[in-house]
């Protein structure tokens, strides 16, 4: 990548602009879904569906940033390995921490 021709740079810039547009659209959609009453998904008010859609858009946006801006679409194996483990541990952390609210034994005794 040390040789960087103008043609190549134009290709790069094009991709960046496309992503830019996608990110802006994504942001608009997120806010619209949250604010415009007739776009209220699922039950009235905030519901699981609203959260899912919001998070989904956020994940797509984040992936675009990571893949294109941060060049993860053509990165070296070592970086993938590092980030894979990291994401894995981050999810494990969140999942297991939240999981600890779930107490089947207590529930069996309190929920009738």
């Amino acid at each position: 990548m040390s040789e960087f021709t103008p043609a190549e740079s134009r290709k790069h810039v094009k991709a960046y602009m496309a992503v830019f547009l996608a990110l802006i659209v994504g942001t608009f959609v997120t806010v619209a879904v949250a604010m415009i009453p007739w776009l209220d998904l699922g039950e009235p008010g905030k519901s699981f569906l609203d959260y899912s859609v919001g998070l989904l858009i956020a994940i797509v946006k984040a992936s675009l940033v990571a893949l294109i801006f941060m060049h993860l679409n053509h990165e070296k194996g070592m970086i993938y390995k590092i980030m894979l483990f990291t994401m894995c541990f981050a999810f494990v952390m969140m999942f297991l921490i939240v999981f600890s609210w779930w107490n089947p034994i207590q529930e069996a005794f309190t929920s009738h």
Binding site: M78, I79, I82, M83, F85, T86, M87, F89, A90, F91, M93, M94, I97, V98, W101
Partner: peptide
Amino acid sequence: IGIWLFLASEVMLFGGLFSAYVF
């Protein structure tokens, strides 16, 4: 490599915060 490692630790930092949020 250095910056990606640092970002990995940042992922864990904000991961911890988001975990706290959900929890």
